[in-house]
Design a protein around this nucleic acid. Structure first.
Lengths: 180, 180
DNA sequence: GGTTGCATGTAAATGGTTACATGATTGT
DNA sequence: ACAATCATGTAACCATTTACATGCAACC
């Protein structure tokens, strides 16, 4: 699944500009499980327009570039509907954090502590953010579900890290003794 | 963090061939949070050899290509040690599953059911695999920790999905009534 | 007789990011 | 004064995947 398809998906929720779509990946709905930069979104929208899957109505603005409001065409909608029925592939994850953990013997104790502190702080921050969003998303069950999913996982992660970090940190402490 | 660095990391654990490194990403230690194909590993090892970060001793084999056993040089080890102290970037995730969930109104009820069933099955399978590995990894606290982390997250995910799938599925059922 | 495992590699295509270019407005 | 927000876009670069090429051995 590429950015092109994701853009179609976003537009099923209502018309939007490229800039607004970017925000969905930055703060919005998708921010927790997908990323996309301007450099991929704008070309995607242009290509989708050429292919007739979206339409674009230009809206002149005084001192800024014209705002280009994209909307899904009926072709676009059915292309997306077809795309979304393809069984989802595996999640793709790259976690530098877990690489750090696996190779934590290479880290000084205070560095490891910092990495773990920061990670736990991050999970708590995500929990806060998601709790705030939970009110906003009202009666949409899909958004409630994904938010709940995010909450459940960040909570589990934060708890695991808090409760088990000593497994990692005790060893670095005792490695002097253990080596002797 | 690129495959090059990951290869250095793997080699800190002992000498290995490209083929063996690939297996680490397929079944081994890294399989749960990183992926890599031959097309990235072999060129990475060649480049690392050119740069003097790894060494390669060829081992002739009768009816197969020579086995190339790579080992870390001291330069390689210190380059890796430096690399690993860089604070980890954010996890990069792309979850087609969650895209499916967000846009689940586009799925027929039985398709959605299948997607959720499959996902729950997947988490249980991962739990099984990790439980099996837990015995194998003996006294290495870093591996125990990452495995425990994986177990905690897959468990939380499986539970959340099992307990809350009706949030998604009830709506598709009642959408006929709600629309009327 | 077909698939899996062993073992290496390359070339093309993919799909993205980063950095640049432009520029007013609003908030700190 | 400086950063952030709004708003679009391009070009160079990057890392990686996919598909191909080779080929025997062991298992089912």
């Amino acid at each position: 699944m590429d950015i092109r398809t994701l853009c179609l998906g976003v537009l099923t929720l209502g018309d939007a500009t490229g800039y607004e779509i970017k925000k969905m990946f930055e703060d919005g709905m998708f921010s927790h499980f997908y990323e996309a930069s301007f450099g991929s979104i704008y070309p995607a929208l242009n290509r989708l327009t050429e292919e007739g899957l979206v339409e674009c109505t230009q809206q002149a603005q005084e001192k800024r570039p014209d705002k280009k409001i994209y909307s899904l065409t009926s072709t676009g909608r059915s292309v997306f509907a077809a795309e979304i029925t393809i069984p989802p592939g595996r999640d793709k994850l790259r976690s530098e954090f877990l690489v750090n953990v696996i190779f934590s013997e290479f880290l000084a104790p205070n560095q490891l502590r910092q990495v773990l502190d920061e990670r736990i702080r991050f999970h708590h921050q995500q929990l806060d953010e998601m709790n705030k969003k939970a009110d906003t998303c009202g009666a949409n069950p899909a958004r409630q579900f994904t938010l709940g999913y995010g909450l459940a996982l960040h909570k589990a992660a934060a708890e695991y890290l808090t409760q088990n970090r000593d497994l990692l940190e005790d060893t670095s402490d005792t490695s002097n003794e253990a080596a002797e």
